[in-house]
Simulated assay, not measured.
Amino acid sequence: MIHTIQPRSGTAFVVNKGQRLKVIDPEGEQVADLYAFNANDKTEFMSSGRSLDYNESLHFKTGAKLYSNLSQVMFEIVEDTVEDHDFLLTPCSVDTFKHFYPDETPVPGCYGNLVAAFADYDIPAHHVGTTFNTFMNVDVDETGKIAVLPPKSKAGDYTVFEAKMDMIVGLTACSAGESNNFRYKPIQYEIIDAPGEVTR
């Protein structure tokens, strides 16, 4: 079953070990912020630093692994039609909008949407860290300057993550203009059960 996350919103759900999470960009050029906690130990959570270190790369594509703060693999990317994502930048927030978009009315952003979604699992706000920004196109030039560019994803593109542990997963349809070429669109996702089990 394919679920739709409405523009500028987010949700949280459980993904079990062996299941696959398919994140879909139905209209193109839309970022989805992904974050996760070990369902059996919420002190273990997705780590940008560990993932960048152990993959020895800023680029994440098929075969890349997303690690926890305890150096355990949480997800492996097993299919990817885009192979262009970001794991450097924090999820957008009210403060992001005040900083980069001072003429706009601030919205909760991905951080606020994740905080609200994870609250249903008794996960406090300060535990939400740097997200895996699926489909986000971030360029780092030779001087170290960071630029957020329009995503390369086209309508129907997707990334499939295989769960390596039971997790509570948060996912958003990103709210920041620069990240989505100043258009706000939905994100879709599907949880695909392990072989031999019934897909839901």
Rank of each mutant, 00 (worst) to 15 (best):
M1A: 14
M1K: 11
I2Y: 09
P7H: 10
S9C: 06
A12E: 07
F13I: 02
K17A: 15
K17Q: 15
Q19P: 03
L21M: 05
K22D: 01
D25N: 09
D25C: 12
E27I: 00
E27R: 02
G28K: 00
Q30C: 03
V31M: 05
V31E: 05
D33C: 01
Y35N: 03
N38T: 04
A39E: 13
N40D: 15
S47Y: 07
G49W: 05
G49I: 00
G49T: 07
S51C: 11
L52Q: 09
Y54Q: 13
N55D: 11
N55L: 11
H59K: 14
K61E: 15
L66D: 10
N69Q: 05
V73W: 03
M74D: 11
D80L: 03
D84T: 02
H85D: 04
H85L: 07
D86V: 00
D86C: 10
F87D: 01
L88Q: 12
C92H: 02
V94D: 08
D95I: 00
D95T: 01
F97W: 10
K98R: 14
K98A: 13
F100P: 04
P102R: 05
P102L: 11
D103A: 06
T105N: 14
P106S: 06
C110I: 02
Y111T: 00
G112K: 03
A117F: 07
A119K: 13
P124N: 12
A125S: 15
T131E: 03
T134N: 03
M136Y: 00
V138Q: 07
V138W: 04
K145P: 04
K145N: 14
I146F: 11
I146Y: 08
V148W: 08
V148A: 09
S153A: 15
D157V: 02
D157Q: 07
F161C: 05
E162W: 01
A163M: 07
K164H: 15
M165Q: 14
M165W: 00
M167Q: 11
M167W: 05
I168E: 01
I168L: 08
A173G: 02
A173V: 06
C174D: 09
C174F: 08
N180L: 09
Y184Q: 09
I187D: 00
Q188R: 12
Y189R: 05
E190G: 02
A194W: 04
P195T: 02
P195I: 03
E197H: 12
